[in-house]
Design a protein around this nucleic acid. Structure first.
Lengths: 250, 250
DNA sequence: AGTGTTAGCTAACGGCGCTCACTCTGCATA
DNA sequence: TATGCAGAGTGAGCGCCGTTAGCTAACACT
């Protein structure tokens, strides 16, 4: 028994870990090429010269595989966003938030299938409603990391510049309670109004990108980029970000 | 040959129309009970005591059936929204818009599967991107009717009260062009700024409801109703709607 | 060397979308 | 009235799918 696990990955464990990774990578390729519905265990296995039942040595079900792919995608997206954030010039949280938001849209529009899996209606199955699942499943952890990228930037903007925020007594009691409960789970303690503004901003960003990617904006626009920039500027105003900084058109 | 079609529905045609309706109704039931993925031709057929191949007398494919169900759902949703609009008291467009928005959220939260089909990522397949499809397929027509409900209310608010709107020259050229093209397809001619504000409002409404229904708000809130009311009030301010009118809590 | 573990296989079950060849029934015409 | 035809519905079957059961062969450890 390898009770001291972390020491030597033991040949067999290494092989297993490699196969584990390869399955997830292949699954991702299949996802991109054939869409969410085409992401089939048999297809993944075929693609890597295996048979479908073998995958059950690594994942308990198709759902389990998908969930792990989701977690990986969140991580990858976070890496991209954090890289963009750290490369932003000037390195103020306001500029960083704008750039990260643009990077988010860019990732979404260039990774259609992946975005649909993370942020679309398919996610219902991966993170079901009823069971609490103690919030520690891989996909949920990765999603939390993702949310933190945006939340931290908004928090830093507030702490450094400040922006207008509803007072606690202006919030509906029901909303206030929930924001308090949420705030208690976060590392930093912020005015509840800040959290409501953050939610509002995130809703707009999410709504804009979702509508574009899922084609629900085509009734009015065939290129959503200018509208997105407009929304972004409007969000900037909300957060008291000076308007001057507009990056070169991509 | 019954060249004069509209005259007597001819027994057989009536039976056919009945079966057509029954299939769609059954499909909707299966959708609600088993989710989008469980909406299978065989399941629908089984449910109504038929065999699957028989359905191909009425629909060319599963996709075709789903598209027809989508159109029906849009129509039903529109009926609900229009009824709420016409029953709103006082019957001003501002109050009507607030009530219709609430009704939209209510329908979404009580018709999970249907909402996902209409507004989620699944819709990509039903209304694919590449082909123009001359915009006349049933689902597209029904979706247009749906959009018009909100658009007409915002237009009436603007025409009756007016609200602050960006001037044409403040819009990005790219956005201005697209808004002009879209405006040209509408029955009424409105300032482009009004249309951009409408889009912005719709994005927020859509984003809010989608996040709630698809569970992407659970990281922060377990009851999205207060947040929704807050967003609605904020939208009201944007549209210059006097704040006083708040309906009884539902 | 012997023993247990484990990764992979084949076979199989039930369900899926969809096609094909067939029957049967109702309708319109010769 | 008899005939023929269009259309509704059927069963069999193809190639997929997720998943399970039982097997083999390689591996790891005593």
């Amino acid at each position: 028994m390898a009770e001291l696990a972390a020491e030597s990955p033991s040949r067999r464990e290494r092989a297993r870990a490699d196969t584990f990774r390869e399955i997830k990578q292949t699954a991702r390729r299949v996802l991109v090429e054939h869409g969410v519905d085409g992401l089939a265990l048999r297809a993944v296995a075929r693609e890597m010269g295996m048979t479908a039942p073998a995958l059950y040595r690594y994942f308990t079900s198709r759902e389990d595989l998908v969930e792990n792919v989701v977690a990986d995608l969140y991580d990858e997206l976070c890496d991209v966003l954090e890289a963009v954030r750290d490369a932003a010039e000037p390195a103020t949280p306001a500029v960083q938030l704008m750039e990260v938001s643009r990077a988010f849209r860019r990732w979404a529009t260039t990774h259609h299938a992946e975005f649909g899996l993370l942020f679309g209606s398919a996610g219902e199955d991966v993170l079901p409603a009823g069971v609490p699942t103690d919030g520690e499943r891989p996909a949920q952890l990765a999603a939390a990391r993702f949310g933190a990228v945006f939340a931290a930037l908004v928090a830093r903007i507030y702490l450094e510049h400040g922006f207008p925020v509803p007072a606690d007594e202006d919030l509906t009691p029901g909303l206030k309670e929930q924001l308090e409960a949420w705030c208690a789970k976060l590392p930093v303690r912020l005015p509840l109004g800040v959290m409501s503004v953050f939610l509002s901003c995130w809703i707009r960003l999410y709504g804009m990108v979702c509508m574009e990617v899922f084609g629900h904006l085509r009734f009015a626009l065939d290129d959503a980029a200018p509208m997105f920039e407009g929304e972004l500027r409007s969000l900037g105003q909300l957060l008291g970000v000076p308007d001057e900084y507009r990056p070169p058109a991509s």
